[in-house]
Design a binder for these strands. Structure first.
Lengths: 258, 258
DNA sequence: AAATACTATTTCGTATAGTATTTTCAATAT
DNA sequence: ATATTGAAAATACTATACGAAATAGTATTT
């Protein structure tokens, strides 16, 4: 009786991979765009990227094709891929207008349809927000951004309408807003002599002050949904998005003015 | 006096390709999904597809990656791609609910912002609708579907909000609705003995009757926009989408009941 | 200085080989 | 009969090398 070849060849028999390389690469590249490792507007060379990530071109190409559909990477035929530019002021306003069309409705629906699972998830997400507030430095803004993304996606999901949830996800608004924030920050750092001072003010304004405010607004929304008060949920979401628009507008303007 | 060099040097040289192969393949595959050459829910074999289209796997993979982002193809890691299933009744309703959130607003904005270029484009599109009504048979439904897709996309574009326009395009609603229609038709053909009779009724209802009705509704919307009557445009668009929902609902129900 | 020609780089697509995983299907056991 | 098992086949995934075609940059000529 021969020894099982398959067993001897793969003695440990590692658990089957649940994801494929191209998916990981997709996430990696998205991450690189997220934190300016790939700067807005910069060229993306497939070869170089493949070498850098230590994979072949095949998964990189698939990832870039998906990122193009997502609107995070732009393709110019025969010239290559480049990271999309930062949001123009118009795109910024358009994006928030779009969110105003779907998110207040989503919050309203969520309040109508939420079940115990949804309520638990909402409470957990708000708990994670409180944790994020304890972090300090740049990481705090990133943590808050990620909470924000999850919070809004969660509500879209609880609304029960997949089309709405998908359309929200595909805006990648948290990614675009974070890029604006980072670009603004980098700009300030390289700026005049008062850069450090301005930066500190900026940090305080955006991270601590604004962060706490945003989370307070999230709290109102979450409570309204948990109370199944649909009108209050809609109103609170509307107010939150407009408030968020006002918070980010200076950064969007500064970048476009530059 | 020398002959214009740029003219003499270039004419022989064939015009540079404006698109790359993977884009053409993307369109081809989308087309194959559109008219059930790739049936809903069926597996998509990359190898076979590459052979069939007479290209290598690379452009096919890029196209499929994009189609997955579009939600037209689903990927299961290590198992491969498959065409998405037909819309469930819930997805169907969700989709129309989503459209109700953005399209009436888009029509309203379009009426406010439309310029002469937009008015001309709207008139041209309505003219093409009249032409489509003259076609007979199955092609008519396809022609009407394509007009419908262009009409709604045009209004979203005139609204000036790129986020809104993109989100509409990405629903690919005309594609999904056409697939529902075709599936229903195929189902009827393979059905009972009264199939032919029912089919004729169906044709008349959906193609001639419904087609003319849809175009009448488009006319109302187009006129409101051209008149820059924003409230009327919003109302007309809202009514049209609800009317369209009612027209397609029987097909969506029939398929889900099957 | 401007047009042209040439070179280098890069993108795009092909071809192929190898590995990992799923699927198929028949033999075996329950 | 049903379920389990295990090899074989099919398929998905990744790597790699190469070549054609377009673009970008440089040098040369007029």
């Amino acid at each position: 009786m021969p020894i099982k070849k398959s067993a001897s060849a793969r003695p440990v028999k590692r658990t089957p991979r649940r994801s494929v390389l191209s998916d990981e690469i997709y996430e990696m590249i998205k991450r690189m765009i997220f934190d300016h490792e790939i700067a807005p507007g910069s060229r993306v060379n497939i070869d170089a990227l493949a070498v850098q990530l230590d994979v072949s071109q095949t998964p990189v190409r698939e990832a870039l094709a998906r990122l193009e559909s997502d609107g995070l990477i732009a393709k110019e035929p025969l010239k290559g891929y480049k990271a999309t530019d930062l949001l123009s002021l118009k795109e910024f306003n358009d994006l928030f207008q779009f969110r105003l069309l779907i998110e207040p409705w989503a919050a309203e629906q969520a309040a109508k349809l939420v079940d115990n699972t949804g309520k638990t998830a909402l409470k957990a997400e708000m708990q994670s927000a409180k944790t994020a507030l304890k972090i300090s430095g740049d990481d705090q803004f990133q943590a808050l951004t990620e909470h924000d993304a999850r919070f809004h996606a969660l509500i879209a999901s609880i609304s029960g309408n997949q089309s709405v949830a998908d359309s929200y996800e595909r805006t990648h608004c948290h990614l675009h807003l974070f890029r604006l924030f980072m670009a603004n920050k980098l700009h300030l750092i390289e700026g005049e002599s008062r850069a450090k001072f301005v930066q500190d003010l900026f940090d305080e304004y955006y991270q601590v002050g604004s962060g706490q405010l945003a989370i307070k607004e999230h709290d109102v929304i979450a409570k309204a949904i948990i109370d199944q008060n649909s009108k209050a949920a809609r109103t609170a979401m509307h107010a939150h998005i407009e408030s968020s628009l006002r918070r980010f507008a200076p950064a969007a303007q500064a970048i476009n003015k530059k």
